[in-house]
Design a binder for these strands. Sequence first.
DNA 1: TATGGTTTGTTTAGTCTTGAAGTAAGGGGA
DNA 2: TCCCCTTACTTCAAGACTAAACAAACCATA
Lengths: 406, 406
Amino acid sequence: MALRPMARTDVNRSAILAHLGAHGPASRAELARALNLSPALMTQLTKDLLADGLLRELAHQPSQGGRPARMLGLVASAGRAVGVKVAADHLAFVEVGIDGSVLRTASEPFDASATTMLAKLVELLRRFIAGGADTPLLGIGVGVPGDVDRQGEGVVDSTQLGWTHAPIGESLRRELGLPVLVENNVNALAMAERLYGLGRRHDSFLVVTIGTGVGAAIVVDGVILRGSRGGAGEVGHTPVRDDGPLCSCGNHGCLETFLSEDALVRIARERGVIGASAGIEALRDAADSGDDRATAVFSEAGHLLGRTVAGLVHVLDPEVVILLGEGTADWTHWSYGFEPAFRAALIPSRRGVPIAVERWQDDSWAQGAATLVLATPFDADGSMGEQGDLVRRRLVQQAAPPEADS
Amino acid sequence: MALRPMARTDVNRSAILAHLGAHGPASRAELARALNLSPALMTQLTKDLLADGLLRELAHQPSQGGRPARMLGLVASAGRAVGVKVAADHLAFVEVGIDGSVLRTASEPFDASATTMLAKLVELLRRFIAGGADTPLLGIGVGVPGDVDRQGEGVVDSTQLGWTHAPIGESLRRELGLPVLVENNVNALAMAERLYGLGRRHDSFLVVTIGTGVGAAIVVDGVILRGSRGGAGEVGHTPVRDDGPLCSCGNHGCLETFLSEDALVRIARERGVIGASAGIEALRDAADSGDDRATAVFSEAGHLLGRTVAGLVHVLDPEVVILLGEGTADWTHWSYGFEPAFRAALIPSRRGVPIAVERWQDDSWAQGAATLVLATPFDADGSMGEQGDLVRRRLVQQAAPPEADS
DNA sequence: TATGGTTTGTTTAGTCTTGAAGTAAGGGGA
DNA sequence: TCCCCTTACTTCAAGACTAAACAAACCATA
């Protein structure tokens, strides 16, 4: 079988790869159960993948009471992926292996508002890619703070970056000749969480990030909810007070103007908790050393966050809420306000919803973007357009050994 | 997480029936376009439905420049459905034809908190059904204010009715021997809206109801978002003020304590706008006749609703928001507060989201419940369990003339 | 009147998936 | 040791769906 048709929407072959990448070797039966597919189909699909050289059979596993399972594993040399996080003032890069492990990271200053921004982005990406491993590069994931169009073209609107209809995806694709997946950064994080984190065991969950802003991603039945124009999850601009501070979106009193790092610093300065030119570190230090006024700043923010998340839990009824972002470094201070406010605001039947605060690492954003490349085929119905197909094609192309068919 | 096994439940035959019911006769080509299926499949499916006696070929339509279309229409005698709205103090019944048209309505007093409540419900349903037309009854739709489990069993939790784990679906099925579909009442309304209303032209929309409470239903890609335990859309208990009035859920300051009919009456009484024993009609009359303090009550509620809905639009990014419920009768008064608050609270890129206030009729709730029966097969992935199948089977069973196949 | 264009509907071959029924390979008693 | 049970995998027939090619029925126009 020289050229398998490699169908238009063959999600499941990729799902197998993604699952093996995320969980390590597994038997056909395990895969069938995990992916909710019939054993019959699993036989069929793995046969193809084995023939393509993407999978290989490993040792048998001791019997579980019946016939022992033949384990299947990824062929490790099958590929790598690169992720970029775009922020207003810098770029963060990550290279991951096909199993999602971080191989390499980098960070570069970047001015998102510069007119030459696109050229600069391409240049820095090229440089990072060049330094990479020898295994085939499957694609680039780009995480941006803002709305991305649904069709997977990669047109970005972002107040934070000052971009309107920026055709990031198309430009990068043209310049780099690689599959490029552009996604909202919180959604990218949710995807990573789904593949490697808590989301593995939950089909519907909510990811909330705190840090430079406030964001949310909604996963329903394993799929990211994008909304009609890719803008779902914009929780940062929930109106809180009519007469609140001016927000970057032009309105007054958005949630972000009370919870973002800048907001906390502003409030702390106004109250004289920290000096007029001090930053978030000063506030953190003060809180860590027991300054009541400093802990109050965090706990008030936690209170507001708790009420907001409670509202989201009412509206979306997730199985679990995952808290992420730079701000979680100070979570102990936030939690004094968050926990009581959150639980008190929930209707009784929802009070048991678990809140998971996951450890945050500096390259998490970029890692989330990178996993897009490995995960997107996972994401049914081509919400990422043809890029998923392209990634898959590259995988097969690289791995398939020349062979003759019977 | 199966990515679209799209189970054996044959959604499309039902979709054809539902479409014809909602829009009247159509050609195969029209159907294929409307339902986004290939013409080839449409030929196949309609052949089956014609053989089953559910469809019949009508006259040709004048050519549109090519071959003239052969119209297909429902066989009207194929079935009817009954819908019940369950409220704390009464039941509302509706009988609809296979095309969704209302054939008959009734209303009966009912005490949802009585221990004999289930028996009473069965009895009143039996009586209503008995008075119906001669065409086969396809099933019963039940709309309840509260959470319904996801599996379509029909287990209900409702603070409003004082029910916990009430096995409504199973009981009714056993007693009546009919398919029974239990659903949150706002979701039922959303389903009706999807089949017969604005939802026909929109895949993602938000339904918000105002009246005795505040509710929301979320439709994403044509499917109702139910959340992990069927409780999505509980917008009425969004926390608004820590020290607000006591809500039926046990918390203080829920949205409902500011926007429900009871809340408006309470506020108006407190302010002396209406007498201490006057009701919502008195407040409406006062507002209609230009009483500034009365209109202020409505417009303040509108303001709060506007900000809340803006938050939902940020989080869910719907194509359109549909406003329904008894409260929309006073919408002109609400809108003075709603419109400015809503638009002002939206981020610029969302300001264009249309708000549709649809005309409200007394039997809308029950009609929504009834359309569940006709619509549920529409609702992919068997989120309503086997009941959809049962309804379909009844349709075919009744209509199929005995015939031998080639 | 022929000719081409347009829309409608059907046939055919082929893909993806499943359920049912089998085969393979171990285990634990009697 | 033999028989049955369990689990893992495979084969097979069949359904749902699509793309592509075709046939049918009309219109316009030269």
